[in-house]
C-alpha cells in the first residue's frame, strides 16, 4: 500500500530533487518530504464555516438567545486562550481558529436558556484547563468542547437540562420549556413520544429538520449533514468514525431498544435524535483525540456508539453521546498502540 503510493509520487520528487541539485539547493531534512497546501489554520476555519448552517438553524429555532450563548462561548474561549498563552509566555495563537471552533462547538452543545456565566466558565474549562494546561493544540487528551459541556452539565445540572421549545419566530423572547425527544423517550417511552409528535413519519421529519427541543446545534440533522458532507468531500474527515458510530447506535437501538424483546427497537429515532449527528461528525472526528489508524478509528467509532446506546437505554442520563466520546478519548492511545502500523522497511519481529 505504502510502496504503491510512493511509486506514484516519487517520479515527481526525484525530478524536484534533481532540479534542486542543479541549483545547488539540495535540502537535506527528515521526513515527511511531501508537503500539502493544507494547514491547521485552514482546516480549523473551514470546519468553523461548515458549522454555519447548523448555527443558522439554531438561531432560527431558538431565537436571539442562541446567538448570545454562542457568542459568549466564543468570547470565553478566545479570552481563555489568550490569557493562558500570555501567562505561560507562549505565542498567542488566536488566529489559528481552534479557539473559535471550540467555542462555537461548545455553544452548539448548550441549551439557549442559560445565564451568561455558564457559557463563559464552561469555555474557560474547555480551553484553559482541557486544552492549554495539557500543552495546547495537539496535546489535549479530551475533546475540549465536550469537556466544557461535561463540566457545565455536572456543575449546573438543572440549567443545562432546561430546554426551550423551538419557536421559529423572533417575537417570543421567553419560550416555554419542554423536554427533549430523548428525555420523553427515557421517562415516558416511545408511545408518549409518538403522541407528542403525531405520527411516526412526522416524528422522523421533525427530527430531521430540527423542530424539537435540544441544544442549539444538535437539533437540525439536515444542517449538520450539509456541513459534514462538505468536510467529507474535502477529505477533512472520513466516514470511518461517524459511520461506525451511527451503525453501532442503530444496531444497539434495534437489538436492545424495543420493549417487546430483542430486535424490536426503533433505530431511526435513536439515530436522528439527541446530539448524535453533531457528536459523530464534529466531535468524535477531532484529529487530536481520535485514533490515527483506519481500524483504530472504526473501533473508536463503534465503541462510542455502543457506550452511547448503553447510556441512553440503561444509565441515568437520557443522552450519552458526550460521555461516550469522552470515555473513548481515554482509550485513544491504547487503540493507537493496538493497531500500530508496520514501519516501512522494518523487519517483522519473530
Amino acid at each position: 500500500m505504502l510502496r504503491h503510493r510512493l511509486n506514484l509520487k516519487d517520479g515527481k520528487i526525484i525530478r524536484k530533487i534533481m532540479e534542486a541539485g542543479k541549483e545547488n539547493k539540495l535540502i537535506v531534512s527528515v521526513s515527511p518530504h511531501i508537503k500539502s497546501s493544507e494547514s491547521v489554520d485552514k482546516i480549523m476555519w473551514t470546519v468553523t464555516a461548515t458549522l454555519l448552517p447548523t448555527f443558522v438553524m439554531g438561531v432560527y429555532y431558538f431565537g436571539p438567545k442562541a446567538v448570545i450563548v454562542t457568542l459568549l462561548c466564543i468570547i470565553g474561549s478566545l479570552l481563555s486562550e489568550y490569557f493562558v498563552q500570555k501567562l505561560a509566555g507562549k505565542d498567542i495563537s488566536l488566529k489559528d481558529g481552534s479557539a473559535v471552533l471550540t467555542g462555537l462547538l461548545l455553544g452548539m452543545n448548550m441549551p439557549s436558556t442559560l445565564p451568561f456565566y455558564i457559557p463563559l466558565l464552561s469555555s474557560f474549562v474547555a480551553v484553559a484547563i482541557t486544552k492549554q494546561l495539557f500543552g495546547g493544540l495537539g496535546y489535549n487528551i479530551f475533546n475540549p468542547a465536550l469537556m466544557g459541556r461535561a463540566f457545565a452539565l455536572i456543575t449546573w445540572p438543572r440549567a443545562m437540562t432546561t430546554w426551550a421549545e423551538p419557536i421559529a419566530n423572533f417575537t417570543g423572547m421567553d419560550a416555554k420549556t419542554t423536554a427533549t425527544p430523548l428525555g420523553i423517550l427515557k421517562e415516558q417511552g416511545l408511545d408518549k413520544l409518538l403522541e407528542v409528535f403525531g405520527s411516526k413519519m412526522h416524528l422522523y421529519s421533525e427530527l430531521l429538520l430540527g423542530h424539537r427541543a435540544g441544544s442549539l446545534g444538535e437539533t437540525s440533522v439536515i444542517a449538520i449533514l450539509i456541513g459534514a458532507a462538505f468536510l467529507l468531500l474535502r477529505g477533512y474527515i472520513t466516514l470511518r468514525i461517524p459511520a461506525a458510530f451511527l451503525a453501532a447506535v442503530a444496531a444497539g437501538a434495534w437489538v436492545f431498544g424495543g420493549k417487546q424483546g430483542i430486535f424490536t427497537g426503533d433505530p431511526l429515532v435513536h439515530v436522528l435524535s439527541g446530539g448524535l449527528m453533531l457528536g459523530a461528525f464534529y466531535m468524535a472526528t477531532d484529529y487530536v483525540t481520535c485514533p490515527t489508524t483506519k481500524k483504530g478509528q472504526m473501533l473508536f467509532g463503534a465503541g462510542c456508539g455502543l457506550l452511547t446506546i448503553l447510556i441512553r437505554l440503561k444509565a441515568g442520563y437520557p443522552e450519552g453521546v458526550m460521555f461516550s466520546i469522552l470515555i473513548m478519548n481515554c482509550f485513544t492511545p491504547l487503540i493507537d498502540r493496538g493497531f500500530r502500523t508496520e514501519v516501512f522497511g522494518a523487519k517483522k519481529k519473530a
Binding site: I129, F151, I154, T155, W156, P157
Partner: peptide
C-alpha cells in the same frame, strides 16, 4: 456556585 467542586473531579481540579 460550583457543584462540581464537591465531586472527586472538583477535588482533583
Amino acid at each position: 456556585p460550583l457543584l462540581i467542586m464537591l465531586l472527586p473531579t472538583g477535588g482533583f481540579i
